[in-house]
Design a protein around this nucleic acid. Structure first.
Lengths: 243, 243
DNA sequence: CGGTATGTTGACAGTGATCAAGAAAGGTGG
DNA sequence: CCACCTTTCTTGATCACTGTCAACATACCG
């Protein structure tokens, strides 16, 4: 990835854009997402001072390719981002989804180990890694901000690695609960990403994801208004599935 | 976990102690493990200034329980540590193993989300989290050291989450290669942890771990001197399994 | 030497993947 | 606004990998 100048457009995105419902949610959440604590306000100001963008990405377009130099770190203002790795046999694993306000792409290596892609239409801020490090060296609050972001991501991945070797039903239930928390809608979730993305994230086939959702619906743990709109009607029962 | 005063001993540990072979390896690696770069020497000195211990733990003894207050962060001087979660149905998932020199147990939450246990006899240093944060607030190098430790752990868990939904053969091969790198033995690995630990880490049954190792041996990718001593005779072929 | 913990191997079952077909939703162009 | 097309999702049938149960082997230890 070189300099950031133009808005990249994907090849042929003429699809439903459920991202917009997330967008309206995210628009209001963005300023608050950054300002988690009063003590971090200065840090955030300092961090935001070196932002570039935002740049608009269309759904399924690539922000960073595996092996690209890790010069930049990112934050979505709007939309959902996925970090993933493609394997030789054509399969793909999505290590994490990122919601607006989360930093992602931070690493101590020279190259990004994972591709970073827009799972929905997205607006992305860029931060030069060297600039962040330079500020962090001067401003303690910024260093602490980076550590907090990194620690938070560590916690999320640990939770994910715990659910990944449980049953399909448990994985899906856990994912839905997690998603509902992270995009803080009430009970109704408008799934921002495709079933294929969910499958690749949970290590399941797309068919199993579909079947499992159907099964949860039959058991009256959730309801479906449409394929992408899920209502968590019985959150307590979903939580019980997790043990 | 309260104050650190005495060496805790496990209930009935009268087993083979393959940890000793690792110990001899780790003894020499510890001073170097900390001093990764010259620029970090000052940070390390500052960090080590607030250490407590080391305290000796016997194999399978618990250092921290799930839900214990997260007042301390740890580093093994010697031995292998596992961080894990027990589920209601009696199964267990090991999120990560830690080798001597690695920080672990860092979190931004008030409680440890995972149990921390000695996978072999181990010598553990303790660091009060509040003390580390206080030093980090004064000394930039320490803040950067914490960030580096956290980022490194993030990278390892990401790699683990990538191998966790691949085939059993691929998981085991990847684990052996990773282990051989981390304990920097040559080609011969003296597995420090039990097959049960490996199984719980890879999300496999103990039987599948055993069968897969046998299979790798039949395919002449590895050799076994004993159940716990494995020689990576064909590292290139193992790497090919990973894709 | 005997007892316990750990590892190995076999038989069978179950969860989830794969293959295949059809349904639903969304966008496009007339 | 409607017909058509593409993409996404759903459902069924079958298969394979891995888990479970069981028995045995081996190593370690007192």
């Amino acid at each position: 990835m070189g300099e950031i100048e133009v808005v990249k457009a994907s090849k042929s995105v003429k699809r439903r854009q459920p991202s917009y419902s997330v967008a309206s949610n995210a628009k209001s959440s963005f300023p608050n997402a950054l300002i988690l604590e009063d003590s971090h306000k200065l840090a955030q100001r300092a961090v935001l001072a070196v932002r570039r963008g935002p740049i608009r990405y269309r759904r399924n377009s690539t922000i960073v390719c595996e092996g690209d130099p890790a010069d930049y770190v990112f934050m979505a203002v709007d939309g959902i981002v996925r970090r993933c790795k493609a394997f030789q046999n054509g399969t793909r694993a999505i290590v994490a989804f990122h919601t607006p306000g989360e930093f992602f792409g931070w690493t101590d290596e020279a190259k990004h180990a994972l591709s970073i892609e827009a799972a929905t239409d997205a607006m992305i801020l860029f931060f030069k890694r060297s600039a962040l490090l330079a500020i962090a060296a001067r401003e303690q609050k910024v260093a602490s901000f980076l550590l907090t972001a990194s620690t938070g991501e560590l916690r999320r991945i640990q939770e994910h690695s715990l659910r990944i070797n449980r049953s399909a039903k448990c994985r899906v239930a856990s994912f839905l609960l997690d998603l509902s928390t992270r995009i803080h809608e009430t009970a109704e979730i408008d799934l921002p990403m495709s079933h294929q993305d969910i499958a690749d994230h949970l290590g399941l086939s797309i068919e199993t994801v579909s079947r499992t959702i159907t099964e949860l619906e039959r058991a009256c743990l959730i309801e479906r208004a449409s394929a992408r709109t899920i209502v968590l009607t019985n959150r307590a029962a979903l939580l019980r599935l997790l043990n």
